[in-house]
């Protein structure tokens, strides 16, 4: 029974990781860029709850106003398209993104 649960957790993790690869890293190939975005969100929203909330809002309905990126950057690359993921999937992706790139866990 324990083995089954462990295998299931591992499988789900792998599945999520795969989803993150597919849904995010396909376009955002540069991890430094993702790290920089997270720093921008941290600088503006501070806490995990606020960062995730702001990310979700932006990805659901991207706009210049909601973006944390500098004007020059937005002018050059524009804003991303509206997400095709459903709310649950998007929430999972935001969680994975925060877990992988948050600033707090990198302070020592």
């Amino acid at each position: 029974m324990v083995k089954i649960v462990l295998v299931l957790i591992f499988w789900l993790t792998m599945l999520n990781a795969d989803s993150f690869e597919k849904n995010c890293l396909e376009c955002h190939t540069n991890k430094f860029q993702l790290s920089m975005f997270m720093k921008k969100y941290t600088l503006k929203f501070s806490s995990e709850k606020n960062i995730k909330k702001a990310l979700f809002k932006y990805l659901k309905n991207p706009s210049y106003k909601k973006s944390v990126l500098p004007f020059g950057y937005l002018n050059k690359f524009g804003i991303k398209n509206e997400t095709i993921l459903d709310d649950d999937e998007l929430k999972d992706m935001v969680d994975i993104y925060y877990d992988k790139f948050n600033v707090k866990s990198r302070i020592y």
């Binding site: 501070s46 995990e48 606020n50 707090k104 302070i107 020592y108």
Partner: peptide
């Protein structure tokens, strides 16, 4: 800094801590 990890500043004559906007301890 564009480093992978951040070494929290430590001082001889005082100690410190930082908290986020929800008053959760960061370091």
């Amino acid at each position: 800094d564009s480093t992978e990890n951040y070494k929290y500043p430590r001082f001889k004559n005082f100690k410190s801590a930082i908290y986020d906007v929800d008053k959760e301890l960061i370091f």
